[in-house]
Design a protein around this nucleic acid. Structure first.
Lengths: 158, 158
DNA sequence: TATATTTACGTAAGTATTTACGTAAATATT
DNA sequence: AATATTTACGTAAATACTTACGTAAATATA
């Protein structure tokens, strides 16, 4: 299965390769949430976690943190609200803003979520410890390399 | 920019992290194609390359190779056909099948594409040589680890 | 050979996003 | 203070897929 064109292309298909790996992770995580009877999907995680840390955060701030557009956040937030995990209140200081925060149900569910997240984190750390090339470190390094000088600029200067 | 919640979450948000990095690559590659006046998008690359290697390949075979669904391939192929790079012929041995192959224009454009792809490949290899943890190797290692025993099974056995 | 199953493909509908656009409130400028 | 600009948000339309479903041809089975 992994001995196909994408694998053979190596460095040239690094994007497709990352997408494929991300898919594998997120499909299994989806099953894990389901088995824990949590009405939750992997895609909500970062948003829900961020809201749980902030207790009142605006749409744009979230969008920037998560590298998504604000319409995407609005949509995701609607689903979390529909499931009852979050609520929104108007900002007292800026009436353009709507602040997202955990609902009562969201706060109550947090410990159960934490249990799952702790296991996932531990498993991921274990998996990467097995590696000669640590996936998370590799990503972080690449981010730093490209931050120093963009991919585009590097291409131009070749 | 990279010192945000996704970064802080580390191993727990590895999916979001990979998506973010993939976005950075593919946006810059899009600009590169545009500057080379190639009527082409990064998302076509693996499909176009695969077709160029096979000279007659069915939709399902492509879908399996690329880890995408067959409707996705049909859609992408339509766009490549609209741009004139590929054409399709009925399989002589199996009349359910439609085989995709390069058109005359596609064949003619291939050397120009190769130039860009060679540069991209070289740049990617250069970038990864700078790393202490080689991104491509890290991905390949993780694929192998999860192929040996799935993420889900590992979670269950924790 | 007749029937059941599988395979290949196509289309339609749903989901997850982005881009584009509009409005209202806040902030900066004159 | 009046005006221009920016910011925050919402919605609509477009894009890139997926899942679900249907049909026809090929293959397996009775």
């Amino acid at each position: 299965m992994t001995n196909n064109i994408i694998t053979k292309l190596g460095a040239l298909a690094i994007g497709a390769r990352m997408r494929r790996l991300t898919d594998i992770f997120s499909k299994d995580v989806a099953i894990i949430y389901k088995e824990h009877r949590l009405d939750f999907e992997a895609k909500y995680f970062v948003l829900f976690y961020l809201i749980s840390q902030k207790d009142g955060i605006g749409i744009m701030e979230i969008a920037n943190e998560l590298s998504l557009t604000h319409p995407a956040i609005i949509h995701l937030a609607k689903e979390l609200e529909k499931r009852g995990y979050i609520q929104s209140v108007k900002s007292p200081t800026d009436s353009r803003k709507r602040l997202l925060k955990l609902s009562k149900k969201g706060k109550a569910a947090l410990p159960e979520f934490q249990k799952v997240w702790n296991k996932i984190e531990k498993l991921n750390a274990q998996l990467m410890q097995k590696q000669q090339n640590h996936l998370l470190k590799a990503i972080a390094e690449m981010e730093n390399i490209l931050e120093e000088k963009s991919y585009y600029k590097r291409f131009k200067n070749m």
